[in-house]
Structure formats: C-alpha cells, structure tokens
Write a protein that binds this DNA or RNA. Structure first.
Length: 558
RNA sequence: GCGCCCGUAGCCUAAUGGAUAGGGCAGCAGCCUCCGGAGCUGCUGGUGCAGGUUCGAAUCCCGCCGGGCGCGCCA
C-alpha cells in the first residue's frame, strides 16, 4: 500500500537524520507526493527544513543524508520497492518506485477488489454529517441537490476511510416557516372553494400549494367553506409537513441519497428540552436578560454580537431549538459533527459554533461546510430562482432532464466553496464535452476489452506474477491505482469530495491513453496480453469503486 | 460601514507553503486494415496591483483594486 511505503520511508529518513545530524533533534519527516512524476513517487523536503537550524545549504544536508538512507534501505524489506533515490535542487530527496513497487499496487487491488480504497484512517470515530435539512415548505431545489450530492458522496468516502459516519436530515417541522405553509395551504383551499381571499404576502406561491390544498380537502371530505373552517391551523400544518416530507423523501431516493437518521425538531426540541437547555446555559452565566428578551453570549466565542434566544413576547428564535438539537447530536456520542449549509447561512456559523462551546464542547468539534449555489443555465441564460415566488428549478426537473448520473456528477464538478454553473444542455450532451461520459466510457471500455478477451481468445487477467508491464503508460496507470486510497483520505481530511472527481478524470484519461498506445490483446503474446488485461481489470475495479462512491452508474456498455 | 468568501490564458478550472503553475472547453493540425473514434497525439496562452514573512508564496500576513454573500427580538 502507498501509505505503508510512505510510513516506512519516514522511519528510514528519521533514522538517517539521527545518524548523520543528531543535532537536528527529531524533526517531523514529511513525505510528499510530487505533483510531477519526474520527481519520483515520494519526495522529502527534510533537508530544506533543516537548512536554517543546521546553518548548512539544503543540498549539502541532502547530500549527507542520501548515503545514510541508501545504507539503511539496503537492509530494509522496502528495498525491492525502491528503484532509485536522488537528490535534486534545491534540496529534495526523491524516491522512485521499482516495477515490483508498482506491481504491489495491482496485488492490493486483486486482493481487496470491491474493498480496495478502504483504510483505517478514521479509526471508527463517530461522525455525523447533517445535510439538505430543507424545511418542508416545498420540493427540493437545485441548491439542495448540490448539497445532497456533496454530503452523500462525502459520507460514502468517510465510511470508506474508516469513520463511523452517518447521514442525518433535520426536519424543521415547527416555527414560522411552517406557520406560513399552513396559512398558504389554507388560503389556496379557500380560493378553490370560491372565496376571494388575498394570498398571504409572505406565503409560498408555488403551484404545488394549490395541489396540496385540493388533496387536503379530498382527504378530509371538505366541500364547503364551513367544512374548511372546522379544520384547525394545526391540521393544515401537519398535513403540509407530512405531504412535503413525502415529496422530499422521494426526491432524495430518486437522487440515490439515503439518509441514516431523520431528526424532527418537534420531537427533539420540545418545550421541556428547550427550557432545560436554557436553564443550563443561564446557570453557567451564558444567558442574560435585556429589554425583556433573553440573550445568549455568543460573543464569548467570537460571534459579532450576542443572540436572542427568547424574544420579549416569549417566543424562541430559530437558534434556540437548534442549540437543543446540537446538544442532542453530541449526546448521541458523535465526536465530530459537520453541517452542510447554503451560503445564505454563513452568518449563522459563529453562533452555532458558540453554542457548541456553551454546551461544553470545543467549537472545533462542530464544522460547517458552506456549499455555494449552483446557477442553472438553459440555452445560455441563467434561470432565476426564488422559493417564495415559486420560481425555481427543482432538483427533480434537473434529474429528469439530464439524468441522475450527470446531475450528481455536475454538482460535484467544482469545489463546494466555489460557485457552480450548471449547464443543462452540456449535461445532456452525449459527447466529448461532457465529462461524465468520458469516465463512464472508460469503464465501459474496460468491460468491453475483458469481454472480448474471454470470448475470442480465452485470455483471463493475470492477477499474480506480473513481471512485464514497464511502458510509461502502464506505469502511470499503476501509480494512479496505488494512489487511490490516498485520494480518499485527502477528501476526508478536507471534507471535499471534489478531489475524487479530478482523480477519476486522470485515471480515465490514463486508460484511454494506454489504450491508444498499446494493444492489449495479442494472439502472438498471450502472456503479455494477460498481464495487460490484469492492468485493465485493476482500472475497472478502481473506476467501479469510485463511481459507486459518487453515486454514478458504472455502465458495462453504453 | 462591519464581517465572510473569491480574483489563475478567450471561457471554465486544479495545485497538503515546494521543483518547469496541471487539466478541460473553444481554435488550428493530425490519428480508424486492427481490442468501442463517447477516444488519442501535437500547437498556442495564465497567478488583479503593491509590500511583508519564508530556504521557498497562486497559497500565509498587511494595504489597495474588482466581484459575490451576510449583517433582524426572520428562518
């Protein structure tokens, strides 16, 4: 494994530093993966780091370290895996893998197969990622779609690298938005019954509200205004929440996003729970009264200003039940809590981190990923969006128009922190301009070659005893295959699945390039064919594993 | 006004403080007797401005310039 080799090199270099320049102490040895393969598979900058302390030039230090490293390596089990060590200006020590080193990556793949990529990096730590958590006031929008794609993929990756990670959806089934929802449905119902009532100014204007009003009346046998008046506001709200949560859940299932935990505000943050948490915070001196309202001292943890948790009229603000909800998450044993929010909520981050602090946790135990908006382009024009006005493209429309695979892939095509432009026409295009197909095509191609080898030549991938793969395109593929588990760990560290997309494009590109340079199936040399077929098989497995993490299909034919 | 995010070629985008700033699109020139041409090869072009920290800065710090977002006893 790549990480094992890295760790062993660290030990070797550490030892070399101790013998050649003990006065340097025990500096931490950092082994990089050079961006440029001309600098080898592993690179160490220790000589550059020690330059100042030792008052020597980096090149001189590296020159001293080199022979010591070689000596140690000569008697080390790793010696078969390293072909060459070089010192290169301004003072890097670079390590080049041998063919045996590269072949070991293929062995790893054939041993682990569908599990290839898994690691123990997360050490089973309980990790809660809360995302989407759209209020049940309408269908999911593309903003939620992007958050869903990012969150779902991220948890898939976190689980793969050894976290006990859960996907959680928090349902805000109470509060102002839900009151407005109830009133909106009520108003549409009255209008359907012929009463000329004005629609609430802040109401939800989407057409779906009218359909819901009709459904509500059908279910409850409401035929007249008098029938309607007998229904409570609460009944309307309850109906609205249940109806829209069904819509949302179906959107998510069709988008291949499956949550582990559904938390309801009404169940977690009831009156008793809120009062208990407020009493606790008040007891700790984190809450004070002013002008009839209760204020939470969020400035103690760096927030701009303190925040109201109980208004002068006795109502709670949005923050208050949310503090209770986060306490609930911590109480459930999650060591790490991460929330995905839209950019319109970034001002909310300091106060919820302050809440974590007030609950006796470190504000660093709670992270927030802000996923920037996706702007949808149709016919080269931006489509404007506003839930209130009912003008938006729903996630469902995008899914139905471009398909689940392209939608998920496109939502991940930029870093979450970057604004995303989603071109519907491009996503639909089945051509070279569309990156989804580039990768899926690579996967289909591996299947096609393996199929043909079996059917026409009876050649099977040679999964052990590889010895002849040495072309640059073959080496490049093996290097990338070996790097796959590292890519997943990098994604987990940065909480950013984007790097996996870049990796996939490179791996797919490497396959296409190899294919164009070298013939896999050759009747005259079936042994080499079997080795190359093994390489193809390994690529197939990695493509398949990573596409699974993205929730994108890995087609065998296209 | 205060706070957060962002400025990389004609357009989009990458780069755990590392080496010659890497891809893609569009453009031009090539590659199918042969495993899927949804592919491959080649050509051209870039870190907003000015300082600082560092052995080393697209990256970190300060100041400008330009863009986005947020600043409620809303959610």
């Amino acid at each position: 494994m790549y990480s094992d080799i890295r760790r062993q090199l660290q030990e070797i270099i550490d030892q070399a530093v101790q013998t050649t320049c003990p006065e340097a102490g025990r500096p931490s040895i950092i082994i990089d993966t050079p961006a440029d393969k001309q600098h080898g598979e592993f690179s160490c900058n220790i000589a550059l780091q020690l330059s100042r302390a030792l008052k020597k030039s980096p090149m001189a230090i590296a020159g001293q370290l080199m022979p010591a490293i070689s000596d140690i390596l000569r008697q080390h089990p790793l010696k078969d895996h390293i072909a060459n060590i070089e010192v290169k200006a301004p003072g890097f020590v670079n390590f080049f893998l041998s063919r045996a080193g590269f072949y070991s990556f293929l062995s790893d793949v054939f041993i682990q197969k569908a599990d290839y990529g898994k690691s123990a990096y997360g050490q089973g730590k309980k990790f809660c990622l809360e995302f989407v958590s759209a209020n049940p006031t309408g269908p999911l929008t593309v903003a939620h779609g992007r958050q869903a794609a990012v969150g779902d993929t991220l948890v898939n990756i976190l689980k793969t690298v050894g976290f006990d990670a859960k996907k959680e959806y928090y349902v805000n089934d109470e509060g102002n938005q839900i009151n407005i929802l109830g009133r909106s449905i009520g108003a549409r119902a009255r209008q359907l019954l012929g009463q000329d009532v004005p629609f609430p100014e802040d109401g939800y204007q989407g057409d779906y509200i009218r359909a819901m009003a009709q459904e509500f009346m059908d279910q409850n046998g409401i035929k007249t205004l008098a029938d309607l008046e007998r229904q409570s506001e609460g009944a309307l709200r309850q109906f609205g929440v249940a109806y829209l949560m069904d819509v949302i859940k179906k959107d998510l299932v069709d988008f291949d996003v499956h949550f582990d935990i559904w938390s309801y505000q009404s169940k977690i943050a009831d009156y008793k729970a809120i009062e208990s948490v407020l009493a606790d915070l008040k007891g700790k001196g984190f809450i004070y009264e002013q002008e009839g309202a209760w204020w939470f001292k969020s400035t103690l943890w760096g927030d701009d200003k303190d925040r109201v948790v109980r208004k002068s009229n006795g109502d709670y603000t949005y923050l208050t039940p949310d503090i209770v909800y986060h306490k609930n998450k911590f109480d459930r044993g999650f060591g790490r809590i991460v929330n995905i929010l839209g950019p319109d909520h970034h001002g909310y981050v300091p106060r919820i981190k302050a809440a974590a602090g007030a609950l006796g946790k470190s504000p660093d135990d709670l992270d927030v990923i802000i996923v920037q908006l996706a702007t949808i382009f149709r016919d080269g024009k931006e489509v404007s969006m506003s839930t209130r006005r009912g003008e938006f493209i729903s996630l469902r429309e995008v899914m139905e128009e471009v398909g689940k695979d392209a939608a998920r892939f496109f939502f991940l095509m930029r870093q979450a922190s970057s604004h995303l432009e989603f071109d519907l026409e491009l996503a639909k295009r089945q051509s070279a301009e569309n990156p989804v197909y580039y990768i899926q095509y690579a996967h289909a191609r591996t299947h096609s070659i393996i199929r043909k080898a079996r059917a026409e030549s009876g050649i099977e991938p040679k999964t052990s005893g590889i010895g002849r793969l040495d072309k640059p395109e073959e080496i490049d593929l093996m290097r990338n295959i070996g790097f796959y588990p590292e890519v997943l760990i990098a994604c987990a560290k940065t909480l950013e699945p984007f790097a996996l997309l870049c990796y996939l494009q490179e791996l797919a590109g490497g396959l296409h390039k190899f294919y164009n340079f070298h013939r896999v199936l050759d009747e005259a040399d079936k042994d080499l064919s079997a080795e190359r077929l093994a390489l193809i098989e390994a690529v197939r497995i990695v493509l398949n594993n990573s596409l699974n993490l993205l929730g994108v299909c890995a087609p065998e034919k296209m």
